[in-house]
Simulated assay, not measured.
Amino acid sequence: MDQPLHLRHRTEVLVDTDAQRLFDHLDDPRRLSAHMAKPSAMMAGASMVLTTDDGGGRSIGSVYRLYGKVLGLELNVSSRVEEREPPWRKIWRTVGEPRLLVVGRYRMGFDITPLERGCRLGVFIEYAWPARHPWLGRLFGAAYARWCTRRMAFDAKAAFP
């Protein structure tokens, strides 16, 4: 039986653009995962590569995959878009059991709330500890979830100065 996704983190930012422009920007998985494509301390100096199906991650059922090596270990996760409501919301979920270090299966997404000026963007993750090494999740999962949602949210904010 799958472990429930009982761990959560959410980051909210104000973005100075309209909901449709923000959604169009975030609808591209390459933009959302840009923080994974660059070496960083949180990734132990490594990076991951993104591939998408013909839907490009922009339709319900579309699948994309991140893979790479961190600390010499092969990592791999595939996600499927399960909700997409332009310009308000998009949610994707892991397919199968991902091969990651500090988080396991997850459900992730964003929601956009128009304001009088600009929008409020919320980026969230609901996750389980990794099946192979749950102790790594207990130690580092929350920090990683916070880093990931913050990077997505603040990268989007920076795209609309």
Rank of each mutant, 00 (worst) to 15 (best):
D111I: 09
F110I: 01
A131M: 08
G57M: 05
R10F: 14
R30I: 06
P161A: 08
R21D: 15
C148A: 15
R84Q: 15
W135Y: 04
I112F: 12
W129D: 13
R105S: 07
E126K: 01
R80I: 00
F154K: 06
W129L: 15
L32M: 09
H25F: 13
D18K: 05
Q3V: 13
A142H: 09
D155S: 09
R80N: 03
D16N: 13
G109L: 03
A159S: 14
D27P: 05
E82T: 01
S62G: 09
E83Y: 02
G96M: 09
E97L: 08
D111F: 04
G68V: 00
L71A: 12
Y127H: 10
T51E: 15
D27L: 11
G45P: 07
F160M: 10
I60P: 08
V103Y: 00
D54S: 14
G72A: 13
T51D: 14
I91Y: 06
L26H: 03
Y67C: 02
S40C: 11
G141M: 00
T11E: 13
A37D: 09
P98H: 02
D16E: 14
A143V: 14
I125S: 05
E116V: 13
Q20C: 03
D111M: 06
R132H: 12
Y67N: 07
M152H: 13
E74W: 07
T11S: 11
G137K: 00
M48F: 14
A128D: 12
R8K: 11
G68F: 06
G96L: 12
V77L: 08
T94H: 02
S40Y: 14
Q3L: 12
G141L: 00
G96Y: 10
V70E: 05
A156C: 10
G96W: 08
D54G: 11
W92H: 14
D54V: 15
E82N: 07
T113Y: 12
M42K: 05
A145S: 03
L5F: 03
P161K: 02
H35R: 08
L136S: 01
D16V: 11
V95D: 05
D27N: 13
P39S: 06
T11W: 05
R31A: 14
L73E: 07
H9C: 01
R120S: 13
Y64M: 11
L100P: 00
V123P: 02
I125C: 05
R138C: 09
G104V: 10
T94Y: 01
L136C: 01
R138Q: 15
D16P: 08
R8H: 15
G122P: 03
Y64C: 09
R84E: 14
K90M: 15
R31L: 14
A159V: 07
F140G: 06
T51K: 06
G45A: 12
P130K: 00
W92S: 15
G55V: 12
L75E: 01
P4C: 01
E74P: 04
T51N: 10
P4D: 03
E85L: 12
T11H: 07
V77S: 09
P86T: 02
P134C: 06
W147R: 03
A37K: 04
A41I: 01
L73N: 03
R117Q: 15
P130G: 08
I112H: 05
G55C: 10
I112G: 06
L7I: 10
R99M: 15
